[in-house]
Design a protein around this nucleic acid. Structure first.
Lengths: 260, 260
DNA sequence: CGGTTCGTTGAGGCCCATCAATCTATGTGG
DNA sequence: CCACATAGATTGATGGGCCTCAACGAACCG
């Protein structure tokens, strides 16, 4: 099945055959990098290290001197209110950078935490900044990564502020399917290791209500979940419900077309 | 009154005496720019042009070849749901860039619209990118601008997802007072040209409910509004209500300390 | 002075939170 | 291999925060 291959590909970005642990990463696949710049980045990257689920990689108010590039597993950013409420400003999928902010900021204003077991490649911030200063393509890549994050977060804000719970869930599922490159025709199929409570923290809802909305989507035949694998048999309908238009992910010039 | 001077300062970033229309702008005041880089940016900027209130500068799905730097007035980004719901992912204050995304993206995934009469300085995207490639400080400045936008939006997501309407409003007022550099001791005082409907679109609420929460804050003596000027007599209490901590604005290395 | 925008107020209702219990799956130690 | 513990999913009952609809007042303006 194509879908299975895709979910395998998205679950692990780099393969043993690749020269660099960064291979397949958005940082590495950036359309703004020359071969030379790609090579320079590769050399600066540390080997991947494995991290258990539910581990904080960085805590809000603290900093790191390393950029964390996730190559396997799901990671989140989270922030909390004084009352204990938790909200994810981002879900970080294989290939994404977890803490781009560390490039310029001493202290992060969010925490970064693994949702599943994950593989993380580290890159010295100092070195990354120095490389950006020497190589325009690397600098542009960082700008690009930040702008795409921004675009995604902007749509999350729209969901959080103006969409019903059902629409929010549908929109998030559509976004994940596209970001994981798991859309195959009008179907989508990918590993879905996240709990309903974590979904709730992404959507600004309670786990109980996420459960009910998930049941609704299942009853409509728009979502099938089995063995932590999710199938979206009718992506088009789900997109209509969520008001999802993939344009904001700006995949036109990125990895997707590079592979084509 | 110091407060009045501050509100004047924040309402108009550049002054007639400044050589460049960019003067006072976050782009121009970036801590990462050398004098030389500042000068190069100045030369690339067009003179400021005035725009009426409620005018779209760019529409979602379209693009511009110009970076729009707001030097006077308030501007917003907005997105809409299929049902007509509107949400601001950002409020753009004097000194901010309205459409950083245009640097790299053909089409914007939000619209940019004036809330008040505004002055806008344009900067060719092509030229800006070329300058970023030649001048590391300019490239870092763009990264910095994008990361700060991201940090702000992340906190908005926390508000939208997990804070009550009262907390949301308090948090936004605190954020605006700091971004406008209008905090003076435990008081704050600044021009407040935004309607309650526009506030609602920032907060993911209805105008009716914003009105009620505003009344609540006024009744508590935490907000005073007269002649489109807002006064926060007790910033500390307002921050406690909103769970506001200005760290996420990352002002430590920026304009504020540059002026000191 | 009439029109328009914005702020204000009230009544009623719904979406989603809250609280609590049950069920299932997984894992773990004896 | 079973008893038990734990995490996650599910279900039900109840309530509240915010929305919706509607009307009115106030300020501004040509």
């Amino acid at each position: 099945m194509i879908a299975v291959q895709q979910s395998a590909r998205t679950a692990r970005v780099g393969t043993a055959r690749d020269a660099s642990p960064l291979a397949g990463t958005r940082l590495w696949n950036s359309p703004y990098l020359s071969r030379d710049e790609q090579r320079v980045l590769e050399e600066a990257a540390s080997p991947a290290s494995s991290v258990a689920p539910n581990v904080d990689l960085v805590r809000e108010g603290y900093g790191t001197d390393r950029l964390l590039v996730v190559t396997e597993g799901w990671v989140c950013r989270y922030t909390t209110t004084q009352g204990g409420g938790r909200q994810f400003p981002a879900i970080i999928l294989p290939g994404d950078v977890g803490n781009l902010d560390s490039l310029l900021f001493e202290r992060l204003d969010f925490s970064v935490r693994t949702l599943t077991r994950a593989s993380v490649v580290a890159l010295s911030c100092e070195q990354a900044l120095a490389l950006a200063a020497q190589h325009p393509g690397i600098a542009q890549t960082f700008i690009w990564l930040a702008l795409v994050e921004n675009a995604i977060l902007g749509k999350w804000a729209l969901s959080l502020g103006r969409r019903s719970s059902k629409e929010r869930l549908a929109h998030l599922l559509c976004e994940l399917s596209v970001r994981l490159d798991a859309v195959d025709g009008n179907e989508s199929h990918f590993a879905f290791p996240i709990t309903q409570e974590q979904l709730a923290d992404s959507l600004g809802l309670t786990a109980v209500h996420v459960n009910r909305m998930m049941q609704y989507l299942r009853a409509e035949g728009l979502v099938v979940i089995a063995d932590r694998i999710i199938t979206l048999p009718d992506v088009e309908s789900l997109r209509r419900i969520g008001g999802f238009d993939p344009a904001y992910l700006h995949l036109d010039r990125s990895v997707a077309t590079q592979l084509a």
